[in-house]
């Protein structure tokens, strides 16, 4: 079966695209999927660091595009999961080195041997975003429950709709349950209502994320110990077509609203 190409994007920077890509890659690979994660942030690569694979890079995406190596040579195999690969970004180049067609052809050649190709898009709406979404079968929009991030997500969804790409699905990242409880954070139901696309994940804020990123050991490896880790695995299972209920934030008001919304969407 040919791979599904998913692009993780957000518009705004710092909402957790790279963390999410790394963890989804790990979670899918732990489910027995053959996964390639592509770092499309040419010039500002990070995905290798989060995965702890920085010191294994020999070739990168731009080397492949410019014909200095074969695609297979540039793929870095994960040190823990044999079916997880990283295609790193070039660090010494910039985004003008990649065109949308290049990404499409790279992804085409990856489709046959894998089940999932996850692309970590750069922030912004310029060329980097354009080439990152070009090959996507499906687009995962990451946002935080804050006004600026939601505004940018809306802009991105508009661009995707105008290009007739997608479908786009929504992940709300870095929810702080106690702040939601006090009404200091945007309501999940309001975010979903405004953006009006399917919700596929809610990830709670978790300090363990920062620690795991610094260690190069994504949280998803130890799925039971943290709420964020469980959330990543739930998203992976939903991507595989399972019907997984959304995690409880011990805040009945929000969840009641949310479930009501999800149900009415699903009918």
């Amino acid at each position: 079966m040919a791979a599904k190409v998913l692009t993780v994007t957000s518009g705004k920077g710092g909402v957790g695209k790279t963390t999410l890509t790394a963890n989804l890659g790990v979670a899918l690979a732990m489910q027995g999927q053959r996964v390639v994660v592509i770092d499309a942030d040419v010039g500002l690569r990070n995905l290798d660091v989060m995965l702890g694979l920085e010191n294994r890079i020999v070739y990168d995406l731009v080397d492949v595009i410019e014909g200095r190596c074969r695609l297979r040579q540039a793929l870095v195999r994960d040190k823990r999961l044999s079916e997880l690969f990283l295609l790193p970004a070039a660090q010494t180049r910039d985004k003008s080195a990649v065109r949308p067609d290049d990404m499409v052809s790279v992804c085409e050649s990856l489709r046959e041997q894998h089940d999932f190709v996850l692309i970590d898009s750069p922030a912004g709406i310029e060329q980097g975003f354009r080439y990152a979404v070009a090959p996507a079968d499906e687009i995962l929009i990451v946002t935080n429950p804050e006004v600026a991030a939601v505004r940018d997500a809306d802009r991105i969804i508009g661009l995707i709709e105008a290009e007739e790409q997608g479908p786009a699905r929504l992940i709300i990242n870095r929810i702080k349950p106690d702040m939601v409880r006090r009404g200091e954070m945007l309501d999940i139901a309001d975010v979903v209502e405004l953006l009006a696309i399917d919700l596929i994940g809610i990830v709670p804020e978790d300090q363990a994320i920062l620690v795991s990123a610094n260690r190069g050991q994504p949280l998803a490896f130890s799925s039971d110990s943290s709420s964020a880790g469980r959330a990543f695995h739930n998203i992976a299972r939903r991507l595989l077509g399972e019907d997984v209920p959304f995690i409880t934030l011990r805040e009945p008001g929000v969840l009641e609203k949310l479930f009501r919304f999800v149900r009415s969407e699903g009918d």
Partner: peptide
């Protein structure tokens, strides 16, 4: 017949009917 999202702009010299939302930033 669609929602206007952030960054999208609609200009028309006559009347305009939008079947959908006009989101913040549009």
């Amino acid at each position: 017949r669609r929602t206007l999202r952030s960054g999208q702009s609609l200009r028309h010299p006559g009347h305009v009917v939008v079947i959908g939302d006009v989101n913040p930033g549009a």
